[in-house]
Computed example of a mutant assay.
Amino acid sequence: MSTEGAQRAVWGEVEVIRVVEWQGAFAPARTLVPDSTEELWKDNGDWLVPDHWEPGADVAVMALQTWVLRSGGRTVLVDTGVGNGRERPGSPAFHHWQGDFLGPLERAGVRPEDVDLVVNTHLHADHVGWNTRAVDGEWVPTFPNARYLLPAADAFHFGPDNAYGGGLSEDDRLVWEDSVAPVLRAGQAQLWDGEHRVDEHLVLESAPGHTPGSSVLRLASGDDRAVFVGDLLHSPVQILEPGCNSCFCLDARGAAASRRRILGRAAAERELVVPAHFGGTGAVRVRPAGGGFAVEGWAAA
């Protein structure tokens, strides 16, 4: 895995800063996307390599990254990575992870106290980790002045009442205790459902399936349109075959339906699609093709 820095773009009146914590080989391609075929990867290898696939080892390449949005005079973080020093026995890649997240963030011009809003697209471990950090043996909010927007459906599912029932692991409990509950106790969290307007440029929208509360963040400013889709996509092969879910999707039918809906609207409205874990330039424009979609072009995000 390689450590990266930050890249910047301006979409309308919103500055977008992409902070990459790491990028590299993550998991066997068809372990990550179980319903995908060997042919799907090989037939598209000319553009999947090197940013999304290592063909020799047949391993998917992914990134761990956060987007900083400067919008309406506020600094907004979209997802917060894995976090350091966490107990994740069921996730070897993240168990006792030690990465440099705050360093690249500060080099991008963002100190923890500068952050006004944190958006967790959903409450999986690699999207909430730096919500908190350890201070004197206690987990406390990393961003002391921020409001944290959490999907209510995920809070109900992953929280202690487990309102949805099932689908939980020991890692889920640990994630809740070290990365979510401290933010709730500090009074810095806001739960939302359905749709939530962040400001004149940004709107959160539910896109359930990957988790009960999975969401996307839509950006519309001037002539520019983009949608930060979280884990709706783990690999570009899911653009080509939107019925293919990742191994992490809790509701396969719901995840596929949300994926088709969001990609269809992105194609129709010329929205750049910005997934949480794509390497390369980070953003992609899609168009309808056959029963799915095709990659029309890549853009920096």
Rank of each mutant, 00 (worst) to 15 (best):
W67F: 15
W67T: 10
R70H: 12
R70Y: 14
G72L: 13
G73P: 13
R74P: 03
R74V: 11
T75K: 10
T75E: 09
V76G: 03
D79P: 03
G81Q: 01
G83H: 06
G83D: 05
N84D: 10
G85I: 08
G90W: 15
G90F: 15
G90T: 12
S91G: 06
S91I: 06
S91R: 12
P92E: 02
P92M: 11
F94Y: 08
F94S: 07
H96N: 11
Q98A: 13
D100W: 07
L102M: 07
G103Y: 04
G103R: 05
L105N: 01
E106T: 04
E106S: 12
R107L: 04
A108V: 01
G109W: 08
V110M: 10
V110F: 03
D114K: 12
V115L: 11
V115R: 02
V115E: 09
V118M: 09
V118A: 10
N120W: 06
N120Y: 00
H122G: 04
H122A: 05
L123A: 06
H124R: 10
H124F: 15
A125K: 01
A125M: 08
W130M: 08
N131F: 00
E138T: 07
V140E: 13
P144D: 14
A146P: 08
A146R: 08
A146Y: 08
P151N: 12
P151I: 12
P151S: 14
A153S: 15
A153T: 03
D154Q: 07
D154A: 11
F156L: 15
F158M: 09
P160S: 14
D161C: 09
Y164A: 06
G167F: 06
L168Y: 00
L168I: 02
S169F: 04
D171I: 11
D171C: 05
D172N: 10
R173P: 03
V175E: 11
E177R: 04
D178M: 02
D178T: 04
S179Q: 14
V180A: 05
P182K: 09
V183G: 12
V183R: 07
R185M: 11
A186P: 14
Q188V: 07
Q190S: 08
H196N: 04
H196A: 03
H196F: 07
R197K: 07
E200G: 02
